[in-house]
């Protein structure tokens, strides 16, 4: 019970801070909309008639937007803790460092899922796919994006904790994070295309890769969290 109370308190604090300052919120929404718009202008207004081509374009745009918005969010979430030594205040409460890790993963996941729920329908509309998508397909799509985001946050939170403790660490995060999350991006993009084209998953390999890498990242990052947050 104590663990759950502490994790819930940390998540409430993280989300409260994000919504209070609105800096990150505004930044990632504007950034994601811009990515969608730039690709729409570059490839539009006459998009390919084949649904599969539009689906590939949409999947690329969505994942590019969410990966880079995710990097911004992850960076900010630990910069807030480091800048004024707030992480020391948390550590001195005697909380298990892995609870700090878990709460950061969950709060970043919630934050990015909110972004995805808003941006995905906008992108589908821009790339002429919205009318061809049912609510079930949209939910499946958000499910895939959710699994990918979980894996991304699992490894990203750990690396963000490491990179923000070094000077110039904010730029370091993208350099070390992006190569690591390639399996998630590959699996996620392929699953997204498949769902947008067929409404289901044609090849289970990509879903396996997405779920497998998410689980591996979650387990290994959880085991390393104590050492990273304490150092």
């Amino acid at each position: 019970m104590k663990a759950l109370r502490q994790i819930a308190t940390l998540i409430r604090k993280d989300l409260g801070l994000q919504f209070r300052s609105k800096e990150t919120l505004a930044l990632i929404f504007v950034f994601s909309i811009l990515v969608v718009l730039i690709f729409a202008f570059a490839f539009g207004p006459n998009f390919p008639p084949e649904k599969s081509e539009r689906a590939k374009l949409t999947a690329s745009v969505l994942w590019a937007a969410f990966v880079f918005a995710g990097i911004i969010t992850l960076n900010r979430s630990f910069v807030i803790e480091r800048t004024h030594g707030a992480i020391h205040g948390i550590r001195l409460t005697g909380v298990d460092p892995s609870f700090v890790y878990i709460s950061k993963v969950i709060s970043n996941l919630i934050f990015l899922l909110l972004l995805e729920i808003v941006i995905t329908p906008i992108a589908l509309q821009f790339y002429n796919l919205f009318d061809e998508i049912t609510v079930i397909i949209l939910l499946k799509l958000l499910g895939i994006l959710g699994i990918g985001t979980l894996g991304f946050c699992a490894v990203g939170v750990l690396l963000s904790a490491m990179s923000t403790s070094t000077s110039g660490g904010e730029s370091l995060l993208s350099v070390i994070l992006l190569p690591l999350v390639i399996p998630i991006i590959m699996g996620g993009t392929k699953c997204t295309v498949s769902i947008l084209v067929t409404g289901g998953l044609e090849n289970r390999f990509w879903l396996g890769l997405l779920i497998g890498s998410t689980l591996v990242f979650l387990a290994s990052a959880y085991l390393l969290a104590d050492a990273v947050i304490e150092e």
Binding site: L17, I80, H88
Partner: peptide
Amino acid sequence: VRHQLGVIVHELMGYPVL
């Protein structure tokens, strides 16, 4: 032992927006 410690260092150890 941490909950037995009351600490002041040069950092705020809190959140300025709160």
